[in-house]
């Protein structure tokens, strides 16, 4: 059977103008392409400022893409006007990073969760709206009594579950999770991740899961894409990336994962990535990573490597291979 793709991103580019300088632009997302299979979880990782969130926000069309195509369930939504996006909004929802900022402080939890139902006029009556809201509250482990409360009365984990409930109440097919756990306590992260996984089993949801924490992404994802300075440098199956990382940047990221066993930690090679991420306004020529790469060759400074398949769906953009 042919694979069905829920989300296809083709050569997506997003530039932001720099205020005060008409010619300079921030190269937030540079020629990114990937596909997410139906019912699978695609993890997108990379350090802060590499364009993960911009990529997510462009896909869900908070931002207008500069170039490239976004195809959701076979439909190209890249350049649709706001009015025509209603269908996309039903299919695709987003969970935000900061559970404190993403919930309106002036609304009760009931109204927050009911908002998508009202926006898409899914429920026929007030009563039906309430029923679905209460149903959703049950599923995320909150009680009916919480419905009349305001968001600020809840803890971070509870709020993020409210965010999950809001995103999932209209039963979307694909959910973009923009670092849904990075603002939470470690003790609560598992709670939210497990909740997301439960929904995946139950409804066959597709996720685009963004994180900077590789250890959590490994637990969650089926496939992982590594981003650096607006570009995808490596894509492969989740298990493969931990066993055979190819790109030097991926190796560096993996080396940065703390090891919870002191004996093993002492044997660990010190992280090989040094320095800071270069400015996305004027990214370095050639391979964007060559300024920090321990294996950089002369060609890396001149020619931009392309994403090539190394066999078994393992793609990497590096001159070493």
């Amino acid at each position: 059977m042919e694979k069905q793709y829920m989300l296809e991103v083709k050569n997506l580019v997003k530039h932001f103008p720099v205020s005060g300088n008409k010619h300079a632009v921030v190269h937030a997302v540079e020629d990114v392409s990937f596909r997410v299979e139906k019912g699978k979880i695609f993890g997108l990782v990379g350090e802060s400022g590499c364009g993960k969130s911009t990529c997510a926000r462009t896909i869900i069309r908070i931002y207008q893409p500069t170039a490239g195509n976004i195809i959701v369930d076979g439909e190209d939504v890249s350049y649709k006007k706001n009015r025509e996006l209603q269908a996309l909004r039903r299919k695709m929802q987003m969970i935000f990073q900061d559970p404190y900022a993403s919930l309106n402080a002036r609304m009760t939890v009931h109204d927050i969760i009911a908002e998508p139902l009202r926006a898409h006029k899914v429920a026929s009556s007030r009563q039906e709206v309430s029923e679905r809201v209460y149903d959703m509250l049950d599923k995320v482990g909150l009680s009916h009594e919480h419905a009349n409360r305001y968001a600020h009365e809840f803890s971070g984990g509870q709020r993020q579950r409210i965010g999950v409930a809001r995103a999932l109440v209209i039963e979307p097919e694909i959910v973009i999770c923009d670092e849904p756990i990075s603002a939470l306590d470690v003790s609560i992260q598992a709670q939210v991740v497990n909740l997301l996984k439960d929904f995946q089993y139950e409804r066959g949801l597709t996720y685009l899961f963004i994180a900077h924490d590789l250890s959590m992404v490994r637990y969650v994802s089926d496939e992982i894409g590594v981003m650096y300075l607006g570009q995808l440098v490596e894509i492969c199956a989740a298990a493969e990336i931990y066993e055979h990382p190819l790109h030097p940047y991926t190796k560096g990221l993996l080396a940065a994962i703390p090891i919870p066993v002191p004996k093993l930690a002492r044997q660990k090679v010190v992280s090989s990535i040094e320095g800071d991420i270069p400015s996305p306004i004027s990214p370095p020529p050639g391979c964007h990573f060559h300024t920090r790469c321990p294996y950089a060759k002369p060609i890396c400074r001149e020619q931009e490597p392309e994403l090539r398949d190394m066999g078994g769906g393992h793609q990497v953009a590096c001159h070493l291979y």
Binding site: R89, R90, M92, A101, H120
Partner: peptide
């Protein structure tokens, strides 16, 4: 974020104005 969230939820401009921004 909560206004962006409301936009991704598909809320109309009126909803965003009167239920999110003005309150």
């Amino acid at each position: 974020d909560f206004v962006l969230a409301s936009r991704t939820l598909g809320s109309s401009t009126a909803t965003i104005l009167f239920r999110h921004l003005i309150p």
